[in-house]
Computed example of a mutant assay.
Amino acid sequence: MIKTLVFHIGDPKNGTSSIQRALFDRTLRCHQVRIAPQQELNASGLANTLLKDDRLERRRKLFRQKRDWALREDADFGVISAEFFARARPRLLQRCLQQYLPEHAADARILAYARPHAAWIVSAYSTRVKTGGSLAILSEFTAQIIQGKFLEYTPRFSRWERTFGRHFVMRPFVLTELYQGDVVADFFHQILEGVPFSLQEAPTAANSSLSVEELAAMRMIQETWVRLEVPKPLRLALGGALGRILEGGAAGRKRSKLRLDQASAVAIRNRFLEDARALDNVFFGKPLMAAALDSAVDIGLPEPQPLEAEEYFTATVLVEMQEAAAALVPPLLADPRAWRNDYRKRKASGTKYGKVAAGIRQKKYIDNVWAQLNRLAGLMSSAQS
């Protein structure tokens, strides 16, 4: 039986994908302590059952599966990781542990990371554009986020601390504060509590941010898919797949970094300074989050960066992008499940290969979609200097 369960709850945009990839690939090497990672790449399915009360049956099923796993494995620590736990009610998770994992409820540990507010907004924007969740420009997205409460960290994480007490650990996603300056290394360092370890290989960056040029292109591509009525779940998967191709090293890839303009940085600082100071006082004991807000203002650009594709690509390339984006829609919609299952398989395996079993016609559809995505990645790498 696993001795202690560790729930890694995110937050989103805090290296969660890289941590999960390292767990799934079993890159940890430690002679003194054994860690049993969750069987799946992430436990989002389990976490999502805590967000709505109409998922009771699925909640029971998935927690019972975790109990079977925890009783079957022989390890010092078992890790369950999903960034969607960040939106769950801590007391609900505690009740589920007591009900479904009673052997582990008393000693279960909770590990969370918090990224400085401004940096989180920039990273989240890149992901939202990539997956079609937002077609706004960065300054507009910033205005939307500061109206919400998700980045009010202190009240949310204080609830976790009140519920789990000393078993809750809050870490700052600040490179100078992370063990070896890396979130994956810091994650294992926290779980192992200082026991020596190594990582078999440096984990490949997962879910890395797009460049300014790539974001401008992705906005246009996602707009094309919206116009052609591609369902949102498929647009999300297409954007994720295109991002993975770019991460794999498309030739000539431009890497201009996305940055906030000063006016947006000032607005973020004004909105979240009180929370930043409270978070520093309650959890970190030094002004990490407040200093990050000041730094964001100091390095803010005088004007927002252009995010229109016309700023970076020739008219010919723009036409080719739109053609490629449109060309993949018929084979995609001919059998949406075929390509999406293939993408999930590739994503889980961490390779470009390993297609799921499919008939000849399905394979043709799948190959056609991938061909156009690879074409798009090449075009996105042809941005003008």
Rank of each mutant, 00 (worst) to 15 (best):
A143Q: 13
Q147G: 15
G148F: 04
G148V: 06
K149R: 13
F150I: 11
L151S: 08
R156A: 13
F157H: 03
F157I: 04
S158R: 12
S158E: 12
R159Y: 09
R159V: 00
G165E: 00
R166Q: 13
H167L: 12
H167E: 15
H167Y: 10
R171P: 07
P172C: 02
L175S: 15
L178C: 05
Y179E: 12
Q180M: 14
Q180C: 10
F187S: 02
F188E: 02
F188V: 00
H189C: 09
Q190V: 03
I191D: 07
I191L: 11
I191T: 05
L192A: 10
G194C: 10
P196L: 04
P196E: 00
Q200D: 15
Q200E: 14
Q200R: 15
E201C: 13
P203I: 00
P203N: 07
T204L: 12
A205R: 14
A205N: 11
N207D: 04
S208W: 04
S208F: 06
S208R: 15
L210V: 01
A216F: 09
A217L: 05
M218R: 00
Q222L: 04
Q222M: 08
W225V: 02
E229G: 12
R235M: 11
A237G: 10
L238D: 02
L238H: 04
G239I: 01
G240I: 03
A241Y: 10
A241R: 13
R244E: 14
I245V: 14
L246G: 10
A250K: 08
